[in-house]
Amino acid sequence: MAEQTTTLQIRTPEGIRFSLLLAGPTSRLLALLVDFACISVASTTISTVLRLFTLISQDIFMALTILSGFVISIGYGIGCEWYWQGQTVGKRLLHLRVMDEQGLKLQFSQVVIRNLLRIVDSLPALYLVGGIASLISRKCQRLGDLAAGTIVIRTPKVQLPDLEQLGTEKFNSLAAYPQLVARLRQKVSREEGAIALRALIRREELDPTARLELFRELAVMFRSQVAFPAEAVDGVSDERYVRNVVELLFEQRGR
């Protein structure tokens, strides 16, 4: 069994690396259920409209109902994924997208192949083959994905963090001690700095008690690494202290 990964690393010809978040079987199953519901609704609606043909011939109505049901069941995935570039209604709702496994856009033939091969993935029942394949394949691919060279990724809405939360325009009492600042930069690891920065950026998302506790712990950690003189830290809250440290850590030298 190949070791499964949750992200797919792509390296561009320019030498830049970026990662795509792979969708797991659960979210894909939920999207599939939504799509089944859509196919069912579309088939029922069209069948209801086609009922008008019974005025002409019951035979034509039946024939058109069979054909439209077939075309919708086969064409829904192909049409949606081609038109919406890798998304169906279910995938849009669950923020998923089908992509070429090299990070490129989908070709029409890829969309056709991955959708036609559903017939194998759905064997013997309830998408068992496809489910097992996506559980054991490294990139969480069902057989249709393997044949078409596609992956399903998560596309959560990503927004640029609000850096105004840092509040770096205020006076920084620690900046008056350059030697201690230099030592602070030496002692604090990148990971610790990143955690503190994240805490500041996401402060509004934390409830007040958790926020106080988090900044207290961070302040204790930074204070234990470098001790600034009392006059620099007296009356400075834990959160303000962390802000000052983060500002010094992430400030460009020689600014």
Binding site: T155, V158, P161, A194
Partner: peptide
């Protein structure tokens, strides 16, 4: 040590 959200945002754009 840039925050993860920052990286995610740029990765998604790229």
């Amino acid at each position: 040590a840039a925050p993860l959200e920052f990286r995610r945002y740029l990765e998604s754009l790229v």
